[in-house]
Amino acid sequence: MLRIENLRKSFGGVSAMNGVSLNFAEGSLTAIIGPNGAGKTTFFNLVTGAFKPDAGTILLGDEDIAGLSPPEVVRRGMARAFQIASIYPTLTVRESIFGAVNAHRGWHARLGRRFPLAEAKAQADEVMELVKLDSRADTVSGYLSHGDQKLLDIALALALEPRVLLLDEPTAGMGPEERWQMIETVHALWERKHMTLIFIEHDMDIVFRYAQTIRVLSYGTVLAEGTPDEVRQHPKVIEAYLGSHFEHTDSR
């Protein structure tokens, strides 16, 4: 589904992405982990067109999308949510989701109709129900709790019915209980929508419990990849990131 080959990016003289090659199978659930500054968010920014790569190919299906702008990448079936929730603070949840559905359907520039469009309702309702925001549909997004804003950010991406969904630290800034609720919501989405889901995460309990496969980045290179068991026992990962005392425990 998504194949990255020899991806490179430098900022000034600093190499942020140093020949990364990764393959994400269709319908897989993958976690990307690594220490701060490893290049995880840069990787997302390159894949989604926020940054133009210096070299390398990004194959979405059979098409090389390297260097395309974010709208062009999204139009080809990739969507993302951000580390800091990126929402529309003055619009309600409902208006935001309808807006995203309009964007996906190509109805966002219609002038002769009144918002919201009746034909967008079924999908908008489904998305709000999927992320459990239906009870807060008429709340102004800027007044939502941090966790709900993160859910709304994910909902905006979901409204695009992506083939590949990238989530940048979906549990960032949340308390322990909220984190597990969030990741279970994300996991349920993945199961229901059968999409390729890639998420960046720092909570190793979450990563090792939910991810099918894990990619470990360090200093802009791939340090290791494999199943949770393989990564957990990888000497380089233990040395550079997890530490020799790491043990996976369910912290709920």
Binding site: T90, L91, S96, A103, L111, G112, L156
Partner: peptide, 30 residues
Amino acid sequence: HFVQSPFGYTLRMIRDNPRRVGFLGIQVWR
């Protein structure tokens, strides 16, 4: 009717967060 149309709401979304609008697949400049 312009501001109450889907276009008008896309415009509000751009006012709030143009970067996010780009990541919905919309060419903001248009």
